[in-house]
Each structure stands twice: as structure tokens, then as C-alpha cells.
Write a protein that binds this DNA or RNA. Structure first.
Length: 718
RNA sequence: GCCCGGGUGGUGGAAUGGUAUACACGGAGGACUUAAAAUCCUCUGGUCGCAAGACCUUGUGGGUUCGAGUCCCACCCCGGGCACCA
């Protein structure tokens, strides 16, 4: 039966089939080994999904689908990280309730993602703005408080004196307010902090136990920024240095400051006993070390540049010192505690009640969640408080301890809160008595493979590891590290190479691509377009290539032979091996190209066996599941291809009978010959030297040296 | 400025230190067709040359090696992060 490939006809049908048969639902009691695949859940913005969003979902989908075929019980969940500024700003502008906006946006995202046939388990969908979810975010905050890891401190916020509101860093452009251009000031405010610095060592050492790319580990290590050094007093100024041995070369002191400036002061260098000047400069960070350094221009480039600019002395050959006489050894970190308060509406209310006699009192567990109240205005107040502060009926309450008059905390949590533990909630998302049961956590944790953006490598990754480690320490989760393996994907940029954003008008909506080419073509193209971990520009012209490939696979079914004497050729084993391996290393682009090479080879064969064709469909199914399912079904299979076993390569049939050996003279290719793949070094050497092209270069003489690389090359040095 | 990546044909890209440009897009020519679309076949890094062939080519400049896109040093350019964007 001949038919045209028509994705419109098949994609929705199979999506329905998968949903009705609950093929993607993870089972809590299964004999199969578990596999927890995770992607970073999206922020459902009003712009809708763009073609960049699905890239990681498709990548992990390929892994998840392969794992199911390999016999795993797979959990591949999704939800919405829905608190945050864009929705709030939209609410401020339009007066719309952020709850309603969030519902509309996530409904749209869900529809769009579902049209792509990603194998998410939608029965476990979560939403960080759902009171049933943020009840536990609040509960977890109280655990931090209970264990002394949440505290209040006076910290500066960005303050626009004209608009009289606190600003997020994002809203400060070149030190000015994004809305009105006024110079932004700092304003001190009491804020809740989380003591992540207590976990600096554990976060650092944990990296040795997990499978992350080296560049991700490096970013985390640098962010934590552990350094061993010494505190040394220059009179009353204490400096931190990692090079106490260079103290004899210290010719001035620099304090953290906004501009380069001599303070007019001098102090004594305890090693040289010389009087040295005290300067201020921006390059010294107020929050690192002691906010003061001893400058050794001879050994430090920045000190040297500063000394040269301001004509300060440079001592080139100074005596080395043991620092024992001058300072004490200390370990410092760049990592700072986490400011956990926001003066905003659209976040989890911090569950604290302030009582004049009892102080900051946690809201009792029975009273959680502290619900976000309805307000008429979502804008922060002109005192710098969150808009919640204006709702007296909500703010004024009774102290849970003494029953006296008290006021609620009006700050909310940062967007990072909900995403710091969502992977724990997925395993038991309907639980109303615990954030997740110990039993289910024990079954599913850790996440086996977590893929996310490079842009989340420092903050989100570190924060969520911190929460998990804390919960492990107090016995609430079974593993110290939440993610066994982490990989990163690159952004999909607009065709002009810049980030896609609504304001730039360069967003590509996947709905259009699905409509024109089909979901399978979109999926295949996003996997084929380039290395998964690298940023790449969208290029619509190339989509036709993957669509044509699917059409070719479609037509190939008409070549299947019933002749039982035909054996599958080595290309099948090679494709199985290559595609299987490439999927594991997320080399999706080369996996797809291997599929194309395999399909091209089958096209050239006179007869294609059913086994060869079914292997092609199975290997293709994680990438283009709808087409694979339809073709598989057309071969008479009653069960989903997604439940068929992943093919295995026969190692003995992996290589072709004949190989081509290149012959190079002094490293330049001059000739080549074909020979049986089992030929040994001596045969290769003799054959190469006997070639006419080689004789020409030798011109009767003997080669100086011959290097033979079996299966590859013979290099002759003349 | 600091930390982490990247730079290869007209385009996206491929390549455990071993035939650079696989696979795909685009382009040229041909077959089929009344014609077009679709499909199939051939060619397609640059320069010189009728050709055989020679030389050049992986951001730039050096180095290591029988052999470097790959390793080392220096530089230039682009992207991500920098703690209140998510």
C-alpha cells in the first residue's frame, strides 16, 4: 500500500493513544529499575513557547524514550515555575490578577508542549504558585529557620528615589532606573537571609561525587571561590591575602571604594616597617575577604596596573616571607549568604509573624500555607515595603505564641525558592501531609539525569543542591546530592544570532512549524541543527532536510523484501552502535546524521529486510515518535514501538570487509589503496611502498621512516 | 574587569593526534513530465592549469610532533554568568 507521509493525519492520533494508554506515567510499584529524567521546568511567560524552549525537552525525551525501551520505569515530569517578575509587571500594567495570567499562560504552554509529543508524565504536573505547592516551600523555609540557617540582616536594596520603589537588579540599567532613568540609590532594609555559606565546603566536596561536565564543576567551584590565605594587620587595617609570602613587596594598601582615591592615611608594613599609603579602588570587593588588600605590584597584575597609573612604588626583588610572624591562616569564600526577601507581590509569603514581645515567630504548621491575599495594586509601596504591607486586615494578626497583637512579615520569597526543591515534589506531587513521602523519595531519588541551561549553572544549580543537602542533613531526603548527572544545552538564538524575545520581535512560534512541517520534523531538526550543548541560530531553510528524510523513511517501507535468504548488512549494526552511543553522550546531531546515512544505505540496497527496517524505526522512534509509531503499526505490530526492546548491535558484524588506507608522504596525502580490514602492519607497509605514486616520491631511494596506523594510514618520511 | 565556553566551505555543521569539510541546506547540470511540483542521478572549499596535477585552506602569530582543526604559548573576535531575570 502506497501512501504519502502526512503528519497532520498521524501525530494527534498517536498523542491521544499514548495519553489514553498512560504510556508515559511513571509507576510507583514496578519491577523495572527506576530512571528519573529531569528538565528545568519552564516559566510560563505571556510570550508563549518559542522554538528554543523545546530543545532541552526533546533532548531529554530522546533519553527517556530510549530508557523505556531499555526496560526502565521512567519518571519524566514537568511543571511550571510560575512566580516572578514578568507576570507581576504585567499585572501592574494591566491590573489583571497574576493568578489568572499564570493560568492562561500555563494553559497555552501546556497545549504547545503537548503538540510536540514529548513523553512527559502530565499526571504529575506541578505549579509553584499553587497554594498546595507553596505550602511546602513555606514549610521548608521554616525548617531552615528552625536549624538556624535563616536569619535577618540589614542589606542594601536598589532604590529609585523618584518612583519610590525597590528595583530588581534586572531593572537597573547602567546604575539607572529602567523606567525613569533616575540614578539608583542603595537603601538599607532588614531582609531574610539563608546561610548558604555554612554549606560552602559540602557544596564544594559534593562536586567530586557527581557526574557533571567539567566546565559546570569549574563554574560552581569558582562561584564558591574557596581560597586559603592569611589575615594580616597593617596597624588597624586587616587585609586578606592568598600570598602572605609576598608581604615584603607590599607597597600600599587598597580598601574597597567607588573610585580610585588616596585616603590621606599611611600605615606601617609589619614586615618592612615602612610607612605605606592607603588607597581606595573599585577593584577591591567590599564583600570578599576583609574588603582590604595589601598591594604587591611586583607579583599581581592588577596591583601593578594600579601602581603604574597612580605612580605608586613598585619593589621588584623583595625577600620572601613565612607569614607566621605577621598574620593568621584562614579560609575565605567568595560565596555570600543568600538574600531571601523580596519586596514584591508575586512570590511565596514568608511565613513569619512579628510580635513585639516574642520577636519573629514562625507560623505554626497547621496554619500553612500563608495564602497570598487579594490586593488592588501590585506595585511595591513608596516606603520600599511589598504591596502586602498595605493590606491591614491581612497584616494585623495575633502572635501564635502569646496571643498578643502582631504583624505578618510582608516580604515574599525570591523566584529561586520554588525551583530549589521541585524535583522532590514530583515524586509525590499530591501529598497533603508531607512535602514528599520518605518511601517515594527513597525509590526515586537521586535524579538520574538533569539537563538545563548553562545560564543556570551557578545560581539555580547551587541553590537547589544547597536545599537538598540541608534536607539530607536533617534526615528528610535520602541522598546528599540531588542530581547524579547534569548536562547543559545551548540557547536557540534568532536567525540574526541574538536571543529570542518578544520585544525584539524575533520569536518563532513552534505552532507554525508544527502546522507546516509536523512535530516530528521540528523535533528531528532541533536535534540535528547543531551540537546540543552549544548556542545556535534558528535557520528555517534547513527544516526541509529533516522533513525530506522522514518522507524517505516513509517510502522505504515499500522496499521490504519477504525473501528470507537476505541477511541484514553491517550497516545496520553500525547504525545501532553509533546511534545508541551518540544518544548517551547527547550527540544528537551526529545520531540523526547516522540515521540518515543508514537510510541512504538501505535505499541503495536491492532488498531491505524487515529486520533492517524495524531497526531503523526503533532507532528513529525517540526522535520522531509519531512517524515511527505509525510505520511500526503499519507493519502489523499491535503493541506500541515505545514498548519494544531497544536494538543491540552484533559486535562481530560492525566493520566492513574492506578498508581504505591513505598513504601520506611527510604527512601529505599522496595515494590510497583498498585492503581487507584484517591486514596486518607488514602487509600495509609493503603494499604502500609498492604503489607507483609512492615510488615516484621515493625516486629510487629508501624511505627514512615508515609509520603504520592499522585501518587508517601509512605515513612515509622521505 | 572576573569566571566558563566557542571561532572549520556560500550556510548549519562532522572529525579517539592519523585521508579536513561526514550529514544536511543552498547552488549548477541531467533524467522523468505536454509543463510544473515531487522524486531520482551527477557535480559543488580556494587559487593556477586544456589536462595530468601542483599549491593553499579549520580566527591571527609562534611552538611540539613522522603527522595538529585537535596538544602548548601569545593575541583578536563572539556567546553565557556575575548573586533581585528566569
Amino acid at each position: 500500500m502506497k501512501s504519502e507521509y502526512d503528519p497532520k493525519n498521524i501525530e494527534e492520533r498517536w498523542q491521544k493513544f499514548w495519553a489514553e494508554n498512560k504510556i508515559f506515567e511513571a509507576k510507583d510499584n514496578s519491577d523495572k529499575p527506576k530512571y528519573y529524567a529531569l528538565i528545568e521546568f519552564p516559566y510560563p511567560s505571556g510570550d508563549g513557547l518559542h522554538v528554543g524552549h523545546p530543545r532541552p525537552y526533546i533532548g531529554m525525551d530522546v533519553i527517556a524514550r530510549k530508557r523505556r525501551m531499555q526496560g526502565y520505569n521512567v519518571l519524566y515530569p514537568i511543571g511550571w515555575d510560575a512566580f516572578g517578575l514578568p507576570t507581576e509587571n504585567y499585572a501592574i500594567k494591566t491590573g489583571k490578577d497574576p493568578k489568572v495570567v499564570t493560568k492562561e499562560n500555563s494553559d497555552n504552554f501546556r497545549r504547545q508542549i503537548q503538540s510536540l509529543g514529548i513523553s512527559f508524565d502530565w499526571s504529575k504536573e506541578i505549579n509553584t504558585t499553587d497554594p498546595k505547592y507553596y505550602k511546602w516551600t513555606q514549610w521548608l523555609f521554616l525548617k531552615f529557620l528552625e536549624h538556624g540557617l535563616a536569619y535577618k540582616a540589614k542589606m542594601a536594596i536598589n532604590w529609585c528615589p523618584k518612583d519610590k520603589i525597590g528595583l530588581a537588579n534586572e531593572e537597573v540599567v547602567d546604575g539607572k532606573c529602567e523606567r525613569c532613568g533616575t540614578e539608583v540609590e542603595k537603601k538599607d532594609k532588614e531582609q531574610w537571609m539563608l546561610k548558604i555559606t555554612d554549606y560552602a565546603e559540602k557544596l564544594l566536596h559534593g562536586l567530586d561525587t557527581v557526574d557533571y561536565p567539567e566546565r559546570v564543576k569549574a563554574q560552581q567551584r569558582n562561584w564558591i571561590g574557596r581560597s586559603e590565605g592569611a589575615l594580616i594587620k597593617f596597624d588597624d587595617i586587616e587585609v586578606f591575602t592568598t600570598r602572605p609570602d609576598t608581604i615584603f613587596g607590599a607597597t600600599f594598601i587598597v580598601l574597597a571604594g567607588k573610585e580610585d582615591r588616596f585616603t590621606g592615611r599611611f600605615v606601617i608594613n609589619p614586615a618592612t616597617k615602612e610607612k605605606i599609603p592607603v588607597w581606595e579602588a573599585e577593584y577591591v570587593l567590599p564583600e570578599y575577604g576583609t574588603g582590604a588588600i595589601m598591594a604587591v605590584p611586583a607579583s599581581d597584575e592588577r596591583d601593578r596596573a594600579f601602581a603604574e597609573k597612580h605612580g605608586l612604588p613598585i619593589v621588584e626583588n623583595y625577600q620572601e616571607a613565612g607569614f607566621e610572624n605577621f598574620g593568621k591562616k584562614v579560609v575565605k569564600y567568595k560565596l555570600r549568604d543568600w538574600i531571601f526577601s523580596r519586596q514584591r507581590y508575586w512570590g511565596e509569603p514568608i511565613p513569619i509573624i512579628h510580635c513585639a514581645s516574642c520577636g519573629a515567630v514562625p507560623v505554626p504548621e497547621a496554619d500553612l500555607p500563608v495564602l497570598l491575599p487579594e490586593v488592588s495594586n501590585y506595585q511595591p509601596t513608596d516606603t520600599g515595603e511589598s504591596p502586602l504591607a498595605l493590606i491591614e486586615a491581612w497584616v494585623n494578626t495575633k502572635c501564635p505564641k502569646c496571643g498578643g497583637e502582631a504583624k505578618r512579615e510582608t516580604d515574599t520569597m525570591p523566584n529561586w525558592a520554588g525551583s530549589s526543591w521541585y524535583f522532590l515534589r514530583y515524586v509525590d506531587d499530591k501529598n497533603d501531609s508531607e512535602f514528599a513521602s520518605k518511601e517515594k523519595l527513597k525509590h526515586w531519588m537521586p535524579v538520574d539525569w538533569y539537563n538545563g541551561g548553562m545560564e543556570h549553572t551557578t545560581l539555580h544549580l547551587l541553590y537547589s543542591r544547597f536545599w537538598n543537602k540541608f534536607l539530607f542533613d536533617i534526615g528528610l531526603v535520602p541522598t546528599s546530592e540531588p542530581y547524579q548527572k547534569r548536562t547543559s544545552h545551548g540557547l536557540i538564538l534568532a536567525s540574526d544570532g541574538v536571543k529570542m524575545s518578544k520585544s525584539l520581535g524575533n520569536v518563532i512560534n513552534p505552532d507554525l512549524i508544527v502546522d507546516r512541517f509536523g512535530a516530528d520534523t521540528l523535533r528531528l531538526y532541533e536535534m540535528f541543527m547543531g551540537p546540543f550543548e552549544q548556542a545556535i541560530a534558528w535557520n528555517e531553510d534547513s527544516l526541509v532536510g529533516t522533513r525530506k528524510f522522514l518522507e524517505r523513511v516513509w517510502r522505504l517501507k515499500d522496499k521490504i523484501t519477504t525473501d528470507s535468504s537476505v541477511e541484514p548488512k553491517y550497516e545496520m549494526h553500525h547504525a545501532i552502535k553509533k546511534v545508541s552511543g551518540d544518544i548517551e553522550s547527547m550527540g544528537f546531531n551526529t545520531a540523526v546524521s547516522a540515521l540518515m546515512i543508514y537510510a541512504n544505505a538501505l535505499e541503495k540496497h536491492d532488498k531491505v529486510t524487515q529486520e533492517e527496517y524495524e531497526a531503523l524505526l526503533k532507532l528513529l522512534s525517540p526522535f520522531a515518535p509519531h512517524a515511527a509509531e505509525e510505520l511500526w503499526n503499519g507493519l502489523g505490530h499491535k503493541e506500541s514501538i515505545l514498548l519494544s526492546p531497544w536494538p543491540e548491535a552484533d559486535e562481530s558484524k560492525l566493520s566492513p570487509k574492506e578498508v581504505t588506507i591513505a598513504v601520506t608522504i611527510n604527512g601529505k596525502v599522496r595515494a590510497s589503496f583498498k585492503i581487507g580490514s584484517e591486514a596486518n602492519e607488514e602487509e600495509l607497509r609493503t603494499t604502500a611502498l609498492s604503489l607507483i605514486e609512492v615510488q615516484k616520491w621515493l625516486s629510487g631511494g629508501e624511505p627514512k621512516r615508515v609509520i603504520v596506523v592499522p585501518g587508517k594510514i601509512v605515513n612515509i618520511v622521505v
